[in-house]
Design a protein around this nucleic acid. Structure first.
Length: 566
RNA sequence: CGGGGUGUAGCUCAGCUUGGUAGAGCAUCUGCUUUGGGAGCAGAGGGUCGCAGGUUCGAAUCCUGUCACCCCGACCA
């Protein structure tokens, strides 16, 4: 491609509304343009990158035996009502009515659609296993789109769905996809980490996420410092630690007129936050309320809580009025002593002795509180999020918290959708069999941002070869003045093109400084500079993006190809 | 949805407090010079100051409303 015929729109200045570096560079390098909040146009240069990511994903999915299909993005609401997700998925589901007032959604994911297809066309166990995938724009009515294409209202996703006669075969395909994802992200050239995950709104039993580690990531991950254990904080387990010491302090009521939070109470009493307990009141699965006790320095983890058999899912807090009715006291001074509700304590809160908690009386807390003696022995459960320093659940090392960008997610769905939507096939004995399902997603457009987030410097983007919009850029010095330069440039451009290399020729007649700045900004991995000086010695100058120094190489296409292969 | 902030040229911003005929840099276009890390000189084009009302002789500026965008938060009592 000749730059004079291309559409390259780069800027020196950083757009004011871009917060993270990938968003800034995508705008500066002319990869995307914003249409509205969370909506982006992919310009020619950006689209080349997106298509290259897509190509890697497609090749590896095909190689793994998956079959590409294309579902409509518009889905009749009935399908989602059938699975129960029309109500359950919440306001993120983008809904609309057509001219006949029929309800539709724009698909944020396609489990219902693929299951519907499967129940029509899969009739025999002989057709299994099978794995269908598509690469398509997904729609989500995000609460707050941000960070450019990282969290948009629509984004390009590869979603795959597999069907199996039994769980063992599902596990086999899950591992196959896990390895395929490894290959995809390795080929693309990003550092990633596989982490244990919660399966969230998609549902299912086992799932793992693929994360790109980056400080701007929206997810918190817990990783062990000595083993390869890694989990999303939503799914990182805590286990009971130690045993409860004997009670040694007397129960005592203390005035805390304005201190409603554990932090304030601990500061007032001059005690560590770790010896306070807060009580959180939530809806119970039986329709009543339950009280959850968590140590003052810990945070309740709603994802864990709603999996507890006595706690309602989705996790819902009690209202202030409900709390008053149950405790006879306003929130801020609640405690387990004398509480009439079932109390479930986090493991760490359950082993505390001589702790501080609310007195169930406005303006007062209790100190020297002990389970059993002062409050009924609570059920102990894993209710909190891990914190840095917690022991790793695999028993090896301590956890630290890092940030990650989720670029892939694989699930063993089990029969969640096949049951709900009555998908069944005949087995060898002619009996009905409900297939096991798996699903596997990759955020294709998000990968583009995540790669930039991980690979950039002061000059701009550093694309890995596999997804660079162009692999080589030729920068001629004095193109209009020097016949030898023009001849050498045209020959190399033609030769590289003939060799199947994506090559960009900067024939705009710019000064070297601005050519180099643009080449760096848009992140082309290899740069060839051709000028009279070098040609006098039959040499081109070669520089790898990100390298400190340029080097001279023989002025031949072979020498250039050798550099590209290195 | 709650809180905070911003809307003035394609981009980054000044002007607003104290109302008086719209500004800078970058970008763009033309010409000349220049050609190894975002060149210099000369000239040119480009804005109903987000939108709608109001106050005023007069509004980018003051008032009211509205829309858009950005940031933080949105279960931790």
């Amino acid at each position: 491609m000749r730059l004079s015929k291309y559409f390259l729109v780069t800027t020196k200045e950083t757009p004011a509304d871009a917060e993270v570096v990938s968003h800034q560079l995508m705008l500066r390098a002319g990869l995307v343009r914003k249409l509205g909040a969370g909506l982006y146009t992919w310009l020619p240069l950006g689209l080349r990158v997106l298509r290259k990511v897509e190509a890697v994903v497609r090749e590896e999915m095909n190689r793994a035996g998956a079959l590409e299909v294309l579902f409509p993005p518009q889905v009749p609401a009935e399908l989602w009502q059938e699975s129960g997700r029309y109500e359950k998925y919440g306001p993120e589901l983008l809904r609309f009515k057509d001219r006949h007032q029929r309800d539709f959604i724009l698909g944020p994911t396609h489990e219902e659609v693929v299951t519907d297809m499967a129940r029509r066309d899969i009739r025999s166990y002989k057709q299994l296993p099978v794995n269908f995938y598509q690469i398509q724009t997904k729609f989500r009515d995000e609460i707050r789109p941000r960070f450019g294409v990282m969290r948009g209202r629509e984004f390009l996703m590869k979603d795959a769905y597999s069907f199996h006669t039994d769980e063992a075969d599902l596990v086999r395909e899950y591992r196959n996809m896990r390895e395929t994802y490894r290959r995809i992200f390795t080929r693309i050239g990003i550092d990633f980490r596989i982490v244990k995950a919660d399966s969230g709104a998609i549902g299912g039993d086992r799932s793992e996420e693929f994360h790109v580690l980056a400080n701007s990531g929206e997810d918190l991950l817990a990783v062990s410092d000595t083993s390869d254990y890694a989990a999303n904080i939503e799914a990182a387990d805590t286990s009971p630690q130690g045993s409860r010491p004997a009670a040694s302090a007397q129960l005592e009521k203390v005035a805390t007129p304005t201190q409603k939070t554990c932090e304030d109470v601990a500061a007032l009493l001059g005690i560590p936050l770790q010896s306070t307990i807060k009580l959180i009141v939530a809806k119970g699965r039986d329709g009543g309320l339950v009280a959850l006790a968590v140590r003052g320095d810990h945070s309740l983890n709603a994802v864990k809580a709603e999996k507890h058999p006595k706690i309602a899912a989705p996790f819902t807090l009690a209202s202030d009025a409900e709390i008053r009715a149950a405790f006879g006291c306003e929130p801020g001074f609640l405690g387990p002593v004398g509480a009439k509700l079932t109390v479930i304590a986090d493991h760490a809160a359950a082993v505390l002795a001589d702790f501080v908690c609310g007195a169930n009386e406005a303006g007062f807390h209790l100190r020297g509180v002990n389970w059993v003696r002062d409050a009924a022995e609570p059920e102990s459960a894993d209710l909190r999020s891990v914190v840095a320093g917690d022991p790793s659940p695999d028993g090896q090392g301590k956890l630290s918290l890092v940030r990650g960008i989720e670029v892939g997610h694989i699930f063993q769905l089990g029969r969640k959708y096949s049951d709900a939507m009555h998908l069944s096939v005949l087995d060898e004995a002619g009996k009905e069999l409900v297939p096991e399902m798996g699903c596997y997603g990759i955020g294709v457009s998000r990968i583009v941002a995540a790669v930039i987030e991980q690979r950039n410097d002061a000059g701009g983007i550093l694309w890995p070869d596999a997804i660079a919009p162009f692999r080589v850029i030729i920068c001629p010095i004095g193109l209009d003045k020097s016949a030898p330069v023009k001849e050498a440039v045209e020959k190399l451009y033609a030769d590289l093109g003939a060799a199947g290399i994506d090559v960009l020729l900067d024939d705009r007649g710019q000064r070297p400084g601005s050519m180099f700045a643009d080449a760096d900004l848009i992140g082309i991995p290899h740069r060839i500079v051709i000028g009279d000086k070098g040609l006098a010695n039959a040499q081109f100058e070669y520089k790898r993006r990100g390298a400190a120094e340029a080097q001279m190489i023989p002025a031949t296409v072979e020498a250039v190809l050798e550099k590209l292969a290195a």
